[in-house]
Nucleic acid binder design. Structure first.
Length: 504
RNA sequence: GUCUUGUUAGCUCAGCUGGUAGAGCACGUCACUUUUAAUGAUGUGGCCGAUGGUUCGAAUCCAUCACAGGACACCA
């Protein structure tokens, strides 16, 4: 049964009393004419005025009561709107007769959303406030807010009831404002570069574009299963075939995998594809993009991240093989020799899956010894072809691909390459994937004949990149769990006992 | 998936080697017209995550389960 909590009962009773007294506890007649932030700015001169007040200025502000101090015939409260917090001074004798004693003191409390008319003044302790000449309840909160000093810190409550987290924690609001700005700036950056924003299907007949398990849904009208997309890649490339030369999409991807500090089943990425460009151009535009973000977010280029300090002015490029020795400290004679790598990994007590090829082993070395050491932004380039099934081979060296991944604070932030546009080569690689799938790799790609068909008409040489927006926001806001940058992170449902009661 | 820690009042947390539950805030009542987590007095408030077990007796010990946090594994 809802509302059985005694505090809620008490407050429902107050709402009823207000109604009986002629005050609508859920009024929608709001007369607000300024935000708290504007109020504080416009009236910052009050301290210099005579008596530190100006009764000729009139404002109407609204907000939620966060603190309430009743002191006999006068009270102080702090109300908060989206823009900020304001102290309100309410005195019995400045309000209609009896209102203060019978309505305000008895039925107004922390959590309620109120409207205050009044004039600006500065208190004895020097705080710019509003002196109430009229006071009105807009919305009665029947659930009590968490404790005023500690707030709500329980992560489970914070994630499940994000609204409560947002009411109580200003820094959480700030994080999500930054997230919103990052998305908006990203959009603007690419638009200004001449990219076209597009929307491609979220429901795919064939899941592809990444190695991941998809969510499955069903289309009743057609009687067929659909897969929530794991990446938009193949549709964006079809658009390059169609003649759009620069496209991007900022949207959700869905992967049916585990959840942890850096994985949520749905996450946001930007993918962009750029005709007549190579991965080298992508390195340049990525640097520009970061510079643009930092300038427009007014962030210093050196940012703390937990124990680390990241210098976003210090982008470097290192070929993967070279990074193994220079960053990872792997002996030079080891890195290009299959047997020696296996021996080396074993000497470090690391298990090696049998049958790994040289490229895969080099990838192992990278994951074990290099990745976590890359703090400042580093483009790792020249990936072995064996671990880059979608990237174009280097013309100079067929063993490596024209690809990079960008690492910051030991994490992959972006993945990019010059795109494979040879339809026959692509067909062969899909076939290899299909064989792997038949052999039991349930994350291997499926044959996508429609995509091969598209490539057959000729896709201009192009380069494409994906950036994980959630992880990027984590870096910029010094957050260490993806749940702290998602407004409503995925949570297991709490067992609902009410159901069984209702069924009886 | 494995390991590990947690779950006690609306919130933040105590609760020793088992003896039927405590604080602060919030809420009720009283006092107080310049407070800053206001203050002082006083009172209400709990199926101690769920289910079993051990015991004369369980918030406490044991087992299972649920949810959450952390680490690792897997995955990009």
């Amino acid at each position: 049964m809802a509302f059985e909590n005694k505090f809620i009962q008490q407050r429902i009773e107050k709402a009823k009393l207000l109604k009986e007294a002629g005050f609508n506890p859920y009024s929608n007649e709001s007369n607000r004419n300024t935000t708290i932030e504007k109020y504080l700015n416009v009236n910052s001169d009050i301290a210099e005025k005579e008596n530190q007040r100006d009764e000729n200025r009139h404002y109407c502000v609204s907000g939620r009561i966060k603190l309430l101090r009743i002191m006999g015939k006068a009270s102080f409260l702090k109300i908060e709107d989206e823009s900020g917090m304001l102290q309100v001074y309410v005195a019995r004798d400045n309000l209609p007769e009896d209102f203060y004693n019978t309505i305000f003191k008895k039925n107004i409390e922390v959590g309620d959303i109120v409207e205050v008319n009044g004039y600006p003044f500065v208190t004895g302790k020097g705080e710019l406030s509003i002196h109430a000449t009229d006071f009105k309840l807009l919305t009665k909160a029947i659930a009590p807010l968490p404790e005023k000093f500690h707030g709500v810190t329980d992560k489970e409550i914070r994630y499940r009831k994000r609204y409560l987290d947002l009411i109580m924690n200003a820094d959480v609001r700030k994080t999500f404002k930054i997230r919103s700005k990052v998305i908006s700036l990203t959009r603007r950056f690419f638009e200004d570069k001449g990219f076209l924003e597009v929307e491609t299907p979220m429901m795919h007949p064939i899941a592809g574009g990444a190695n991941a398990k998809p969510f499955v849904t069903h289309h009743n009208a057609l009687g067929i299963d659909r897969f929530l997309r794991i990446a938009p890649e193949r549709y964006l490339k079809r658009l390059i075939v169609g003649g759009f030369e620069a496209v991007f999409e900022i949207n959700r991807n869905f992967r049916n995998e585990g959840m942890d500090a850096t994985h949520n089943p749905e996450f946001t990425s930007i993918e962009f594809y750029w005709a007549y460009k190579t991965y080298k151009d992508l390195i340049e535009i990525t640097k520009e993009y970061f510079k643009y973000l930092f300038e427009h977010l007014n962030l210093p280029t050196v940012l703390p991240y937990g124990e680390l300090e990241i210098n976003f002015d210090n982008f470097t490029e290192v070929p993967l093989i070279k990074s193994l020795t220079t960053v990872g400290g792997v002996p030079a004679e080891v890195v290009n020799d299959k047997e020696k790598i296996v021996e080396f990994l074993k000497s470090k007590n690391l298990t090696v899956k049998p049958g790994m090829n040289l490229g895969q082993l080099q990838g192992e070395l990278f994951d074990e010894f290099v990745e976590e050491k890359l703090v400042d932004p580093t483009f790792i380039t020249e990936y072995p072809v064996e671990i880059s099934p979608l990237a174009r081979r280097s013309d100079d060296n067929p063993a490596i691909t024209e690809r990079f991944e960008l690492f910051i604070a030991g994490r992959e932030i972006a993945n990019a390459f010059s795109e494979l546009n040879d339809p026959v080569d692509q067909y062969e690689r899909f076939k290899g994937q299909v064989d792997a799938k038949d052999a039991g790799d349930d994350e291997a790609h499926e044959m996508d004949e429609d995509f091969i068909d598209a490539l057959s008409y000729g896709m201009a040489p192009a380069a494409g990149q994906g950036i994980g927006m959630d992880r990027l926001v984590m870096l910029l806001t010094n957050e260490h769990s993806i749940r702290d940058v998602l407004l409503f992170p995925a949570m297991k449902p709490v067992h609902n006992e009410e159901k069984t009661a209702e069924e009886e």
